[in-house]
Amino acid sequence: MYSPIIIFEALANGLMLGAVYALIALGLTLIYGVLHIVNFAHGALLTVAMYAIWLAFEKFGLDPYLAILIVTPLMFALGYALQRFIIGPSSHGSDNGILLVTLGLSIVIQNLLLAGFSSDTLTIATDYAFGVVPIGPLLLSLPRVIGLGVSLLTALLLWFVLNRTDIGKAIRAVAKERLGASLVGINVAHVYAMTFALGTACLAIAAGLLMPTFYVSPTTGAAFVLVAFTIVVLGGMGSILGALIGGLLIGVVEAVFSLFLGDSLGQIGIFLIFILVLLVKPTGLFGARG
């Protein structure tokens, strides 16, 4: 049996890592909620963002957290262009088309990264990467604490954009009633692209939060995709709040399972929850539609 300190620390760690998972899932759930597509290029786009953060650090000496401010608009633009000029036109709006195009894109992106950066594992070394925040007897990792804060802030910001801005209102209108929205003069293709762009921009922030403690290679994003899907389902597909709570929850579940079962079998816990939620309440914790 573990001492309470170890257990508390595991829970805290799960919560903090879960927040970053949530950030990755936020983009995915936003895109699903509006475009009704499962974006299989999400993992590859996360990898792109991580390389961008690495480049900013390596070539321009920018701190990964500061680099977020530059990489986010770039990823936003990339996301917009991808949806507006590639995914939208080439998929003809069919589910199968979107599935194939996003999968095809992920193959292209992953191998472009391989050709451009080669296969090396790249890391960023910062002074604060090994820093800890002592809270009582707990030693919390400084980058993780920052990750939790920034993730919560991002979710809040995203909520604000969706509820308090014109583009947010347009996005919600299209999500609810696509045809009606286009009838009142909303440019649906533009709104779709803006949504995709917002979802992709979230990845830039996640990448900035991950890079101080993680590494990047052309296949890195794949490690986070399945867990992000799980969170999206758990929280309810399309729900921002759901993704946030779902992410925190999955982080904690993963921590507890791996503390007691080991990391390998611990992964089963995540998928069992995923299956159970789908079977019992497919709309997830906060899903709107049935």
């Binding site: 595991a10 799960g14 890592l17 791996s258 503390l259 080991g262 990391d263």
Partner: peptide
């Protein structure tokens, strides 16, 4: 004896043990 998957996302729980 602790096993973990490849790729691993996190080693905190392993190290905590």
């Amino acid at each position: 004896t602790i096993s973990h998957p490849t790729p691993a996302r996190d080693m905190n729980n392993v190290v905590l043990r």
